[in-house]
Design a protein around this nucleic acid. Sequence first.
DNA 1: TAGAATTGAATGATTATGATTGATTTTGAT
DNA 2: ATCAAAATCAATCATAATCATTCAATTCTA
Lengths: 249, 249
Amino acid sequence: MLTVERHQRILQLLQEAKTVKIHELVEMLQASESTIRRDLSQLEKEGKLKRLHGGATLFQRKREEPSLVEKASRKLSEKNTIAAYAASLVERGDCIYLDAGTTAHQMIAHLDAADIIVVTNGLNHVKALLDKGIETYVIGGYVKPRTEAFIGQGAMNSLRHYRFDKTFIGVNGLHPAYGYTTPDPEEAAVKALALEQGQETYVLADHTKFYETAFSLIADLSTAVILTDGEVVEGLEDFQEHTKVVTIK
Amino acid sequence: MLTVERHQRILQLLQEAKTVKIHELVEMLQASESTIRRDLSQLEKEGKLKRLHGGATLFQRKREEPSLVEKASRKLSEKNTIAAYAASLVERGDCIYLDAGTTAHQMIAHLDAADIIVVTNGLNHVKALLDKGIETYVIGGYVKPRTEAFIGQGAMNSLRHYRFDKTFIGVNGLHPAYGYTTPDPEEAAVKALALEQGQETYVLADHTKFYETAFSLIADLSTAVILTDGEVVEGLEDFQEHTKVVTIK
DNA sequence: TAGAATTGAATGATTATGATTGATTTTGAT
DNA sequence: ATCAAAATCAATCATAATCATTCAATTCTA
């Protein structure tokens, strides 16, 4: 496997679960411990992640006690994120589906509408949702160990019992010809069904995901509105031919 | 489990409960007392929490009862004895149901049989199960905020799809005339169904639960084998008339 | 093919963990 | 208030896990 490819997959895995253990990477990427360590220290040097004893985590700017000024400016910048915008779409009384993964997780902090109900397949979302005082339902199923997302037949069966006003999912790639894609077929199936059950459907995808493709097809572009950030994407029109694209800047 | 993950979870638990006892953390996080102490003193140094005798509290707490030493540490070890025995009943290849709650949680540390599958309705069990490398399924449903257990119609529907070699549940009271009881009707319904789906069924109950009754009936005594500790219980025969009682000493 | 880059294994150093010890604190009974 | 028992605590140690470094083998590239 190519070095860059390995690096990408490491970052991708971090997106899904916000921490990885060295041993998980060794196993999943079929590389030696030495190589993984080299990858991690290099990625750390590039500021893409933070190493910890036994693994790594997504890089996040000093969470340590931000000053009032920093807080204010951060709040402001946060208003412009994909997650914040997505959350602002949720209205009082809505019932929404929230996909597993860090992207959707970021929405939770901004979910301020009253009387909403959230259904999710992300085990890690639950505590945050409860902390917000949000009425929370979880679909059941097999627990995918690393990401702690529910997938499989059990998840599908449960999901079929719900309908959503709005569905929010994350993807690994989106492409005019190949649609929305993600590596794990089982996860793709859950995402696809969640889209079907939703009245309004949204895909959260930053600009790096455009023209990328992963192994498993979730659905065509036309099945959801794309929410993305303000970075210039070449050939955005190709996507707009298929569906509405909202760019948050 | 990564150190930071443990720290995160400690803070999370603290946020939910305002205070945590060391022993609770040891049990929940499957780490030694030494490690937990180190975690706490480190987190205290970072100003994230305040240690107090027997546990910790959130930092910005007012002057409140600085004592959370529990009289129940003997009860704790008794519970643990029951849990260890219960876990020893699980054999290679078994598919078992594990009820939410602390009693069943303690079983996890002792679940050493290979190739087992665990189905649970306890959100907090999942991390511990995955850390043990156990294949884990969760029934879906409404998340009951305080206990973080899955209940309701969704939970019931999911549960109906599974069959178990062995079912383990906790109860709040057991009585020869009134059977197994628990306060919440919704939880009672889930427990009852779990018992129905199980081939062999066990109720874990320390001696303090005997002759107690709570609001909601789960099932008659005859529907499960009772696992209890070695304390002498007056009138144990009344229970043995209805079902098998295993006393672990 | 030669040179450079990448990889995997081996090494000692560093760090995290769990058990043990004796000191300290809390509790409950006088 | 005082005391004894129980629980918690801090400190220490041995063990286990992780880490940085080195070096030889392999792969890639010019």
